[in-house]
Amino acid sequence: MTAPILQVKGVTKRYGGLTANNDISFDVAPQEILSVIGPNGAGKSTLFKQIAGFVTPTTGEVIYKGTKISGLPPHKVARMGVVRTFQETTIFKSMTVRENVIVSHHLRSKASLLGFFFGSSQAKADEAEFGKSADDIIDFLGLQAIRNETASNLPQGHLRALGMAIGLATQPEVILLDEPFAGMNHDETMRMVALVRRLRDERGLTVLLVEHDMPAVMKISDRIVCINFGEKIAEGTPAEIQANPRVIEAYLGSEDAAIGM
């Protein structure tokens, strides 16, 4: 395995007496698609929040390219190249699709806020570049038809894609996808699986995702980390995870059919 781009080292998060994450460690290789799975309440979201800087670990740390990022505020983590997307409800609702994507280019602006106020040449250059890049991303995700639609009017599938577009606009190296397949039918899921692959193949991203849809996870992931009751119980390729007795036990009652295919 090449040098990891992201390392989670002994991350523990306690809320009072409740331990949401207990001593979780794993590495993520560059351009890998890694899924974090686990039953509801296992602590997947808490883990994601800690990687993206929304929550500071009680102990342990998150290392990105050799630098500790846990404990930094989210905008600094994003600036370094680790960006989290949210579930579909989290977009800028009263902006159009294109405005959503343009505003998300914030990290790349070279002009100062004062420059933007007075309309300096750098600010104009930035705006032009953002517009072009936003159009590229919209084309990449196949959102051309709804470019000027107000986000609050969009159906679920498009919202998910828009959330991804917002994430892409920040030009991340590692993108964290929060349940990208939730609430989708089989066809939509397969399209989304193909899209996530393209994020890696065409844009060179490293993808971390939290997901419940087991068939999709098995299909898309290079490796899987399984969490239960806040602890990592397994890590490995989809085949290894499917065969792991502890994973099967965690999903007890759902048998093989629910975990694999």
Partner: peptide
């Protein structure tokens, strides 16, 4: 200006706003 767009992003969703940097 861009400043206003950022303010709007803040008005609509602060968490997302933080995550885009």
């Amino acid at each position: 200006s861009r400043l206003g767009h950022l303010c709007r992003s803040l008005q609509q969703n602060e968490e997302l706003s933080a995550s885009i940097g």
